[in-house]
């Protein structure tokens, strides 16, 4: 595996990561996809989930993203994330509390718009929890 992909993770507030890697696995809305060098150009939406960065056969980095977009070219993979957090930096207790709070908010939400907003947040928090539960997360 001589060729590398330039992986970039960008949030609205800053450029979080920019490094050459062997492979990245991105959680697309229609299923996870791995990006190797020479991938066909593609634009996809990203669901809340974990991006895995591979160096050789090993996962060297796991980053949680709360949805966004991915742009893939032959040499580059750019992920525009709304929110990104290293998996190791997520505090399980805080997430569980957030889920509890949000569930309460959901029952309080008056309008449909409010409800949808809370549901979206809840989905993100739930995805965070799921990400923590997957094996190998605590590397």
């Amino acid at each position: 595996m001589a060729d590398k992909v330039e992986f970039e993770l960008v949030s609205p507030e800053k450029l979080l990561k920019s490094l050459p890697v062997d492979m990245v696995v991105v959680p697309g809305t229609e299923g996870d996809f791995g990006v190797l060098a020479g991938h066909a150009p593609m634009i996809a939406t990203v669901r809340p989930g974990v991006i895995e960065v591979y160096e050789g056969d090993r996962v060297v980095d796991r980053v949680f993203v709360a949805g966004g977009f991915a742009e893939v070219t032959e040499t580059r993979c750019t992920v525009l994330a709304e929110e990104a957090q290293a998996l190791s930096a997520i505090d399980r207790a805080a997430v569980e509390k957030a889920i509890k709070d949000l569930s309460e908010d959901l029952s309080d939400a008056a309008s449909d718009a409010d409800k949808a907003a809370v549901e979206a947040k809840l989905a993100v928090a739930q995805a965070k929890l799921d990400a923590l539960a997957t094996p190998g997360a605590a590397h």
């Binding site: 809305t29 229609e30 150009p41 593609m42 634009i43 996809a44 939406t45 070219t73």
Partner: peptide
Amino acid sequence: AVYEFEPDEEQILAE
């Protein structure tokens, strides 16, 4: 470059 879109371009654009 001709991109592939997943899901289709209109849906992505809408997001």
